[in-house]
Amino acid sequence: MRFLAWRLALVLPTLLGVLVVTFLLLYVAPGDPVQAMVGERSDSATIARLRRDLHLDDPLYVQFGKYVGGIAKGDLGRSYITRRPIMRDLLKRFPATLRLAGAAMLFATLTGIALGVYGAWRPGSWPDRLAALLAYLGVSFPVYWVGLLLILVFAVALHWLPPSGSSGFKYLILPALTLGMRSVAIISRMARAATMEALRSDFVRTARAKGLGELRVVLRHALRNALLPVVTVLGLDFGSYLTGSILTETIFSWPGVGRYVLNAIEKRDLPAIQGSILFLSVVFVLVNLLTDLAYAKVDPRVAYD
């Protein structure tokens, strides 16, 4: 419990740091939000009026004070461009991101661990060599290339799956494969190495000596010990998937937070950029916290109190 309280207390300065950095960075970045708002055709009177309405001419510390004040009340402000509340827009998109990240992680975990454990159990077999090749390709090929290739094969050539969109389960398959591919590569290699090491250890020899079945030895004894590094990767990857996978969401027209952030950046929508980064930082910090807590479950030696 003390650990949990300590970790939660650490979240606050982290987020305050994020707040200050994003606020300042965006004010020194080139590009003018009002120019983006008014479009190509505008006059300087309208631009001056909008700058005044948005308090963009106030001193920086006044703007920052107003912004922090709003956030303290749980208000991320309104988008300059759409005039909609940012929190509401993010919360609307977050389920889509969660769905995609969850599916990608599920695919990556199951496939990665299965390939890794099988490879450790039967090193040098053809599935092991295939897994090594897939891992190599998985980390080497860029996401957009794999995404477009999957669309060309499964949607355009074979007509098995829709190219893009988010209307149901079948729409989830290609983006989840694309997004999870890199994790499959890393998880399978880590699971393989860790399981191999465990299979050579004394407790596995003991388990075998007791006459346990091979499947039970591998799954109950070796795998459990191999999971710790895998959990670390899972936590980090899940965190980054949840904070928006801009490329995958763009290729598959997936309406998640990644595209919201990208749109905001392209339009110089300052409050939307700041709000998204803050929101996503909270998500990332929470996922990391959960990962830390998961260690204790996986490895009883890790005790936080």
Binding site: I151, A155, T250, I251, S253
Partner: peptide, 18 residues
């Protein structure tokens, strides 16, 4: 009216009759 940002995805949607 779908929102499809990527031109190659737009082409794929067309070729998939969508």
């Amino acid at each position: 009216i779908r929102i499809i940002p990527e031109p190659l995805t737009q082409a794929a949607e067309y070729e998939a009759q969508q």
